[in-house]
């Protein structure tokens, strides 16, 4: 465990090196929310309806605001492409030679990055949420909060495992960036990032619930917004855990098969 703690501490230091870059990126994160608020305002006004996809205007805006928080947990920038690079340029060799589990290493690194991100982004997020407080439903009860936090942790593990599994494809394909691009596109849409999945036609929605993406963003956000009962929330958490377990098993299988194919070119 000590070695993963060291990885964690190194990653913390690494994340804090380029603070200017970080603050700029964090600030820019908030640009789309303004567009979202204005676009949905125009859509609601144009439609003349009080609710769209089962949500009032304020609920719609708070959905997008909460999606931003949920996405912090589930998004894994450069994880899959990083694995691809390690396989392609031979960098993976150094992990194979050390008494360290590569996936465990990546997980420790990612946890550290997420923690630093949350520490540094708290200020800007608090400001934006305070400015937008008129749209937000207020704090939910402790039960809902507990369910939300649990679903966020699972959303993190789900995002990590899916991206890790895609990264493992690089043992078989030299360039995973193309798959990654395809995947990111599908994920962005099917996770409910673009719009609440309740607005999709029923036939499409029935397919979407059988895929893991909605459990990364859409459902955890609905838990916070109290659009789901406690029983439904627990069911969502159980589905998340099942997906994590299944994909984790896939990672282990891909790793054991992939390492046998790995030729350690370059490095």
């Amino acid at each position: 465990m000590g070695k993963y703690w060291s990885v964690f501490r190194i990653a913390l230091a690494d994340r804090l090196v380029y603070r200017g870059d970080f603050f700029l990126s964090t600030f820019l994160h908030f640009v789309p929310i303004v567009t979202t608020i204005l676009l949905w305002d125009a859509i609601f006004k144009g439609s003349g309806k009080a609710t769209l996809g089962g949500m009032h205007y304020t609920e719609m805006v708070s959905y997008y605001l909460l999606v931003m928080i949920t996405r912090v947990f589930g998004s894994m920038p450069r994880l899959a492409s990083g694995i691809g690079l390690d396989v392609r340029d031979g960098g993976l060799r150094k992990y194979l030679l050390q008494p360290i589990d590569y996936v465990g290493y990546l997980l420790a690194w990612r946890v550290a990055h997420k923690i630093v991100f949350m520490m540094m982004a708290t200020g800007p997020y608090v400001i934006v949420f305070w400015v937008c407080r008129g749209f937000l439903p207020g704090w939910p009860g402790l039960t809902t909060l507990g369910l939300y936090v649990t679903s966020l942790v699972l959303a993190f593990l789900l995002g990590f495992s899916i991206n890790c599994l895609i990264g493992m494809f690089s043992f078989w394909f030299l360039e995973v960036a193309s798959f990654l691009h395809l995947f990111m596109t599908v994920q962005y849409f099917l996770s409910g990032h673009m719009f609440p999945l309740s607005m999709l036609p029923d036939s499409v929605r029935q397919v979407v619930v059988w895929l893991p993406f909605a459990y990364e963003t859409y459902y955890p956000t609905l838990i916070f917004l109290k659009q789901l009962s406690v029983g439904e929330s627990l069911r969502i958490i159980a589905v998340q855990a099942t997906w994590v377990a299944l994909i984790w098993a896939g990672i282990r299988l891909a790793w054991s098969r992939g390492v046998r194919r790995y030729a350690a070119y370059g490095g």
């Binding site: 380029y18 700029l24 990126s25 820019l28 789309p32 567009t35 204005l38 125009a42």
Partner: peptide
Amino acid sequence: FVRQTGLQSMWFYVVSLARYPSEI
């Protein structure tokens, strides 16, 4: 700044802003 991952974010957000009717 030396490291400039902000460029990709900036492009993404320019794209996000520009694709809607300016009237909104």
